[in-house]
């Protein structure tokens, strides 16, 4: 059996603030296999970026990893000293952020930044590194790379810059990439190109990718599996087809129905009442319970963990392996639930 590239178990991240300790991530677990794209969706503040930062080792005070384990190829990386962490971060793990300018230094030519990264993380010499940089720019779809390599970041359009950032992320041939909203700042036509690029690179190189976005459409096109986050927890996780087409968790269902599509005929969008709770005020039991139209007594006291759904609700698709839902509706007999 193949080993996961990244394995996250029961992750907890806290921020120490004047108002007390805020738990931003509370018991998140998932694996990502080689060549697999795990999409992470959820509304702003759900904890997507903090989860990504925790894996990369970029949580800084007042934040801290307060519990759980993160493993890369079976080895723990959540408790490494800063030096070892930095080495892993360059070589084995790379990241792509929403704003390409956070990853590019405006004062240096694009080529210089690529070559330096290649020299640091591989055994190539300067000439070979430059050739490799041109090859990478070509691979991410920059036209005339041998000419563009000597340009400065501001000479590239937004979409081209994001391609450069992806090339930069690929320099060290990492095993794992965290891409946090990589297409959110881009126009749809460019977004589609970047999505296709990430998908292709991941397939060809066997890189594992954690793709964070609030855009369900992007997930549907790119991811193999998807995790829906709510209030720092995973509400539902499973193969992308199952979760997008047949969401089980009441929040995931609401979220899908709320999105206008190019096909739907509905006159009104599904509306989830209320809004996501503040970290200082997460409800007891199921975090979604004050907004849930299926809530029952148990939801207010006992927290549901992501689990294989034992019971389907009437009219719902057969349950798929690998699909996990954190909702009491699926852990008990539906007849009991009705009471």
């Amino acid at each position: 059996m193949t080993e996961p590239v990244i394995s996250v178990r029961d992750l907890r991240v806290e921020f120490v603030t004047r108002k007390g300790i805020l738990r931003a991530i509370d018991g998140v677990s998932f694996d990502i296999m080689p060549g697999e794209v795990l999409g992470v969706v959820g509304e702003s503040g759900a904890g997507k970026s903090v989860t990504g930062s925790a894996i990369i080792g970029l949580i800084e005070p007042p934040g801290r990893i307060a519990g759980g384990e993160i493993r890369l190829h079976g080895q723990r990386i959540d408790n490494l000293d800063p030096e070892s962490l930095r080495r892993i971060r360059g070589r084995k793990i790379a990241m792509i952020f929403q704003d390409p300018l956070t990853s590019l230094n405006p004062l240096y030519r694009v080529g210089e930044q690529l070559v330096e990264t290649i020299l640091t993380h591989t055994d190539l010499g300067p000439a070979a590194a430059r050739a490799r940089a041109i090859e990478l720019l070509n691979e991410v779809g920059i036209p005339a790379p041998e000419r563009r390599i000597d340009g400065y970041p501001h000479e590239f359009s937004g979409g081209m810059r994001q391609r450069v950032v992806i090339a930069l992320a690929l320099c060290a041939e990492p095993d794992f990439i965290v891409a946090d909203e990589p297409t959110t700042a881009l126009d749809v036509s460019v977004q589609a190109q970047i999505i296709a690029l990430i998908r292709k690179l991941c397939r060809e190189r066997g890189t594992a990718v954690m793709l964070v976005t609030h855009d369900m459409g992007v997930i549907a096109e790119t991811a193999d599996r998807v995790a829906v986050m709510y209030a720092g927890r995973v509400a539902e996780i499973g193969p992308v087809r199952d979760v997008v087409k047949h969401p089980l968790h009441p929040y995931a269902k609401g979220l899908m129905g709320a999105i206008p599509t190019l096909e739907a005929e509905a006159d009104r969008l599904v509306q989830i009442p209320g809004s996501m709770p503040r970290l200082s005020n997460i409800p007891q039991g199921c975090a979604f319970n004050p907004r849930c139209d299926r809530v029952f007594d148990r939801c207010r006291v006992e927290r549901p963990d992501p689990d294989i759904p034992r019971f389907g609700l009437e009219g719902e698709a057969p349950l798929m392996p690998g699909h996990r839902v954190a909702c009491h509706l699926y852990t008990r007999n539906p007849v009991e639930n009705a009471s």
Partner: peptide, 17 residues
């Protein structure tokens, strides 16, 4: 229209932009 990510996952063929 071709560029819009396909939430319906119809697997429709698209011409790359």
């Amino acid at each position: 229209l071709d560029a819009v990510p396909d939430l319906g996952m119809t697997g429709r063929q698209r011409q790359m932009v």
